[in-house]
């Protein structure tokens, strides 16, 4: 009886997954092109989620710091790149000038991208060195500190950049879409967002599994005190990890600013997405972040399109499916799919 009760969530999960797969297969067989489109949408937005969540989970895995200001760093990165593009490359940031034939050079996208990534990495580093370094180990206090930082950031970003949604322009010399046969898909989403997510994932994997730095990081995740006792300067490793994690948030902010937009509220939106990704995938696990990001992206994009049954349109309730995803995973694995006890 007890085991039956224990197994109930697992059985429910398997049944649910089967149901979803069958349902999607039915939808896919009806209209293949739309299905492919929706799937790629989910994967590319999942790629964005992955870049944000990877930084979040890297910082948490090593330092046990839940950086609640991660979403603010994402948004700040977007604004920095937007401003840089507008003021350094004349005309590039005016959306209306595009139709008049104005060119957006590759440099006017790449330079702000690098600039925002580096600056946000440094901002994160400053936050860590000034506010977090001296109360290491007090997880909740650190979470509260970063919450305070995020409150201040949200207000300051609103004051400095205003409340209007802005877009970072994509280079005009890049193709608009990728075409396979009769199927078109936006080039930027596929190649730049999804591509850079894959590249970042692979690079992080290599960094963590193949380099001396990664070896130290992995050792630090398992036993910080012992690593420190063996003569490794843990503080430098922490600082580097915080820089990389924050820089990833800034990088994602620029991509998000080009694909979606830069506007107040996206800080909490992306923080929520990153939280769900790591709750589902398991805190501190890079593979978990990848799985969680893909799952979240697909759930969001499928539920936004396919929650229509005959004439009843339930797409308004799409957010409930995200909720169900979180609940189901937590019920079966409280630490997430790839989570390990600290």
């Amino acid at each position: 009886m007890r085991t039956a009760v224990r197994q109930a969530p697992r059985a429910a999960l398997i049944a649910l997954v089967l149901l979803v797969v069958v349902w999607l297969a039915l939808k896919g067989s009806k209209d293949g092109t739309t299905f492919l489109q929706v799937t790629l949408n989910g994967l590319s937005i999942g790629g964005l989620f992955f870049v944000v969540a990877a930084g979040f989970t890297l910082i948490f895995g090593l330092m046990r710091v839940v950086n609640m200001a991660h979403g603010s760093l994402y948004l700040f990165g977007g604004y920095l790149a937007y401003k840089a593009q507008a003021s350094w490359f004349h005309g590039a940031a005016s959306q209306f000038s595009l139709t008049a034939g104005n060119k957006v050079s590759v440099a006017s996208f790449v330079v702000p991208l690098i600039y925002a990534t580096v600056v946000i990495g440094l901002v994160g580093l400053v936050i860590q060195q000034v506010l977090l370094r001296w109360n290491q180990g007090q997880e909740l206090r650190q979470a509260l500190i970063t919450i305070a930082v995020s409150v201040i950031f949200a207000d300051q970003l609103l004051a400095h950049y205003g409340g209007i949604a802005q877009t970072i322009n994509q280079p005009t010399s890049w193709p608009l879409s990728v075409t396979v046969g009769s199927f078109h898909y936006p080039f930027f989403r596929l190649a730049v967002v999804l591509g850079s997510a894959v590249v970042i994932g692979v690079l992080l994997y290599l960094l963590i599994k193949r380099t001396r730095f990664g070896m130290i990081v992995r050792a630090g995740v398992d036993d910080r005190a012992m690593l420190s006792a063996m003569g490794v300067n843990v503080q430098v490793v922490f600082a580097a990890a915080f820089f990389i994690g924050s820089a990833l948030a800034g990088f994602a902010g620029v991509l998000g600013g080009a694909v979606l937009s830069v506007q107040p509220g996206y800080d909490t939106q992306l923080l929520l997405d990153a939280l769900i990704v790591v709750i589902v995938g398991g805190m501190g696990s890079l593979g978990g972040a990848a799985i969680g990001a893909v799952l979240l992206g697909l759930v969001q994009s499928y539920s936004a399109i396919y929650l229509k049954f005959g004439s009843t349109d339930l797409t308004n309730y799409a957010i409930l499916l995200t909720f169900i995803l979180v609940i189901v995973v937590l019920a079966v694995r409280p630490l997430g799919l790839f989570g390990r006890p600290a």
Binding site: E139, L140, L272, V278, I279, I319, L320, L330
Partner: peptide, 21 residues
């Protein structure tokens, strides 16, 4: 079933989901 910082994040997710709902 989750503790400490995990509990904080899980409940934050609840808050945000209810808001967006």
């Amino acid at each position: 079933r989750s503790y400490g910082i995990y509990f904080l994040m899980t409940t934050l997710a609840l808050s945000l989901l209810v808001f967006y709902f």
